[in-house]
Nucleic acid binder design. Structure first.
Lengths: 236, 236
DNA sequence: TCCAAGGAGTGCACTGAGTGCCATATGTGG
DNA sequence: CCACATATGGCACTCAGTGCACTCCTTGGA
């Protein structure tokens, strides 16, 4: 009905936005810990109680859009429940987070500076990242149910994807949001995808028949063989 | 001198231990959030102010030994600054953490249950784990300075090692500390070591000459070759 | 034996985050 | 005009954490 909240789920409200704006203004000019919730609500011209209606804690106002992004990621993974290449799927899911950061470069950079300085915010960010990681891991766990060590692989790959994503994201944030963020993230994720045995975006024109391999001693452990290949190709 | 603190660095004092004991007794019988710092100091029979002398926050009393363990890990990595196989080194560093957990199985299991239930403690644990991960990552960053994408690889491998370690550790904790923890962790870490191209403990008797590989088209990308090998060996 | 000096522990008052409860608008449909 | 729900505000309270000053107690020296 038209009487429902027009922005159900998105979490966008004039009040909410006003609080975020007031909070960041003060955080940037005095610092996070030097700003009390009373300061924020005073500047926003609202009651103190309303702040905690919109944000369960003072830290939450710094990450106003992660809740929505996490929901997006969960939905994205749910619709790819039968993707052929699960690792690629979680990499694409990670790109959703990057996209959110890239939508507001200046805001993201400001927030990055804050979280780097303030230990409390860094800790809070960890718990946010942890939820993304768990979302990726539980997707992979479902996909790897049949495998031996499926949950182990799921956890490790999820952690690797998150680490690669964050490595690229942070280097982009450190450069004040200059340049193309997605290129760096693509590169980082391709590394992970390769390490865990899925092909990164297959270079067109490259067909299975193009590579012929002969291996002696079929019982040899895979790691030995790979080592040998690397030497043969001169990439060690 | 004999006048120095007898336990410099270890953080062990009668007072500290008494506080930890009192805290856990109350946490287990009433729950973490239902226990105030005043309750703890009352039970321990000490002044409230003393609590915060030994523990910067209420959460810290739940992880009384991680500070020391982190220092041990840093030292361990420092003395292996020229190890031939950095990945193995960080895996061994991770085993130090496992050892700390395994030294007090019942305590570790109790703490595990607490951290699983209480969101605040889970968040705090994340920041502890994060410090371990950063220690591993900065070791690897130094070792990989020369490599292209050295910091990326360092971050990803550190995250993978931590994830593998935690996967095995948690499954051990879930089983009430039954069985041999180190076996599961060894298995998990071997997976990571393999995925990132270092050989896990080389099966004795296995020599480079045992494996002969012939590859056509030396220009082919490594991932394609590995894929082919896997199919050839029937492990896909 | 007496006297500094320093550290360990304590008491007290204060700030600030977060919560529960109730009062007050501000609609909305009957 | 009346229920009724929903958004907001005010107030009082709990509790974590901090700064400061005070009391011991130990140790070492004269």
């Amino acid at each position: 009905m038209s009487s429902e909240k027009a922005d159900a789920g998105t979490g966008k409200t004039p009040m909410r936005d006003a609080l975020v704006a007031a909070a960041f203004q003060l955080f940037l000019e005095r610092g996070y810990e030097q700003t009390t919730v009373d300061d924020i609500v005073a500047l926003a011209g609202v009651g103190r109680r309303s702040f905690f209606r919109y944000f369960p804690s003072k830290e939450d106002v710094v990450f106003p859009d992660h809740e929505r992004c996490l929901a997006d990621m969960t939905a994205f993974l749910a619709e790819g429940a039968d993707d052929d290449e699960p690792v690629r799927r979680v990499c694409d899911a990670a790109r959703l987070v990057l996209r959110m950061y890239a939508e507001n470069p200046t805001f993201s950079v400001q927030r990055y500076r804050l979280t780097r300085e303030v230990p409390g915010l860094r800790a809070y960010e960890l718990s946010v990242v942890w939820r993304y990681e768990r979302a990726l891991a539980s997707y992979l766990r479902r996909r790897y149910e049949a495998r031996r060590d499926g949950t182990l692989q799921a956890d490790v790959i999820a952690a690797a994807v998150v680490a690669a994503h964050n490595n690229a994201l942070r280097s982009w944030l450190r450069s004040d949001g200059q340049g193309e963020a997605s290129a760096a993230v693509d590169h980082a994720l391709a590394y992970v995808q390769f390490a865990f045995g899925e092909a990164p975006v297959p270079p067109a024109g490259e067909r299975p028949e193009d590579v012929v391999v002969v291996v002696s001693r079929r019982g040899a452990p895979l790691w030995r063989v790979v080592q040998e290949i690397e030497t043969t190709l001169g990439r060690a």
